[in-house]
Nucleic acid binder design. Structure first.
Lengths: 190, 190
DNA sequence: GCCGCTTCCTACACACTATAGGCAAATGAC
DNA sequence: GTCATTTGCCTATAGTGTGTAGGAAGCGGC
């Protein structure tokens, strides 16, 4: 009966690759089963449902992305840290579009609370410590920064920048500069 | 045989309502058929496929949203126009989450070119004329602004702001203020 | 070798997409 | 009014995906 050696972990990793190749929506029980050359029903011993499979991919992506961001901001501060932080997100989204989409997958509250999502929030706050913002400005800045990075990355991925000749990288650098200037201007402003 | 009076337009409108109620992913041929108390096969006389149905909803949402934005910025300029522009997007997303998601639906290039999407781009540029930016700064600003608004709205919709007590409206106002200050600082800076 | 557990299988019930072809209601000609 | 045509919705069917139940083959411990 030629055992393939399925594991929840292997299915999750394969799901992540499938997401990058065909999009996160293509991550289904039967698609992954086909890649292992196995019947779909066999996967149900390892994952509870398609939703469960996707949740696994989402958690993996959040973890990977948090690791990269952590490495990017380690030992840096101020503008340099901001640029590295933003670049970590953008580079990951460009290298692994499916995983990036997976990281956006809606998790139920307690799964989210136990995920690497909290590390993302902590790192964003850590980054902003360099700008010395008092509350509630710091929270405002966390939200603005998160929205900015995510929004830019998503519009770029969706092809929204394809109709103009201007290099997206230049727009990105310009935006990061603007963010830095904005945050510095608001330091101590509470 | 009790004709219900199906039309492509009625199916599209109903799809938009379904999207707001159950999410854009719930917009399927059979779900809409159920709402009209009709067999799924009957819909295929009016829409070519599920994708076609969703495209219709997306075009409707883009149109509606463009109308609202146009109304919001009419007769305003500068900071006031920026605030109204941003509020139009956010308010629409909060009132019609499914349609907002639909507006993000990936259209094939020629459908996109014939959609209200181009009005959105034109209005964004029109808004930025008030800040007197030279190229390529204007394009950078268009991208930044688009990303910012979309990213903030999406994170808010995804519940990303639920873990902190700070009022999202306050963060929104703070962000719009910061954007305005930043754009003014960059006027003529080419 | 044999027992027991795990892994993967077949079989099945059900839902959604999509096509083909049928029948009846609405519409227009007269 | 009635008849023919068009249109609208139907049934039937094939294909694919999800998820459950139960069966058989592999693998380890002894």
């Amino acid at each position: 009966m030629a055992r393939v050696g399925l594991t929840r972990e292997r299915l999750t990793r394969d799901g992540a690759e499938l997401a990058d190749e065909q999009g996160f929506d293509a991550v289904t029980v039967s698609a992954v089963a086909r890649r292992f050359d196995v019947k779909a029903a066999s996967l149900y011993a390892h994952v509870k449902s398609t939703d469960d499979l996707r949740t696994g991919v989402a958690l993996l992506a959040l973890e990977e992305l948090a690791d990269r961001v952590a490495e990017a901001i380690a030992g840096r501060s101020g503008r340099e840290a901001l640029a590295a932080f933003a670049a970590a997100y953008r580079d990951y989204a460009r290298a692994h579009p499916g995983r990036y989409a997976a990281a956006r997958f809606r998790l139920d509250p307690q799964t989210a609370a136990a995920s690497a999502g909290v590390r993302h929030a902590q790192m964003t706050r850590a980054l902003l410590r360099g700008y010395d913002l008092a509350e509630p400005d710091q929270t405002h800045a966390v939200r603005m920064l998160g929205g900015m990075v995510h929004g830019f990355v998503e519009l770029e991925a969706a092809g929204g920048f394809a109709h103009t000749a201007v290099d997206p990288q230049a727009s990105w650098d310009w935006t990061v500069d603007a963010l830095d200037a904005m945050l510095r201007a608001r330091a101590h402003a509470a």
